Simulated assay, not measured.
Amino acid sequence: MDKNKRVIILNSILVGTIVLNLFIFTSRMRFFPWFIEDAWGYLGLFLTAPILIGIFFILRHFHKQQLVTNINKTIPLFVAITSLIIVFGPTTDFLNIVALLINVASVFLATNFLFNQNGGKNNYGFSSLKN
């Protein structure tokens, strides 16, 4: 399989995992239909965090081959660490809002990398990644 296709598939899995993370974080908010009252939904973060950390290590390997940017490489690690901090720390509304903002921004960044994947080349044929 072509390396660019692997990166596209990996970015798709990344977007799906971050969206699942968003559903888990919003499970504590009463106005959503998937509300869970006693916050057992946070146990789902123990499923998504190892997936995100695994994606980070794979993207790190692709970063060494200059197939992904540094920002794309660090998105899954940042989301996983933020999720675990929220789970192990005291749960407040402010921390939920921070986690939601980080997850939404990460989804936008990851989808930007997913839909703008053009083999590391810009429109003029020059490499867009610098050494």
Rank of each mutant, 00 (worst) to 15 (best):
I53M: 11
I53R: 02
G54A: 15
I55C: 06
F57H: 09
F57N: 07
I58E: 12
I58C: 03
R60D: 08
R60W: 07
H61E: 12
H61V: 03
F62A: 14
F62D: 15
F62N: 13
H63A: 12
H63T: 10
Q65N: 08
L67A: 05
L67Y: 13
L67K: 11
V68I: 13
V68L: 06
V68R: 00
N70P: 02
I71T: 05
I71S: 00
I71R: 11
N72L: 15
I75F: 11
P76E: 07
F78M: 08
A80M: 04
I81V: 15
T82S: 08
T82Q: 08
T82E: 03
T82Y: 14
L84I: 13
L84Q: 10
L84D: 02
L84N: 04
L84P: 09
I85M: 00
I85D: 12
I86Y: 05
V87Y: 09
G89N: 08
G89L: 02
P90T: 04
P90N: 09
P90Y: 12
T91P: 12
T91V: 06
T92C: 08
T92Q: 01
D93I: 01
F94Q: 13
F94K: 03
F94H: 13
F94C: 01
F94M: 00
L95D: 01
L95K: 04
N96M: 09
I97V: 07
I97F: 01
I97M: 07
I97D: 04
A99Y: 00
A99F: 03
L100S: 11
L100G: 10
L101G: 07
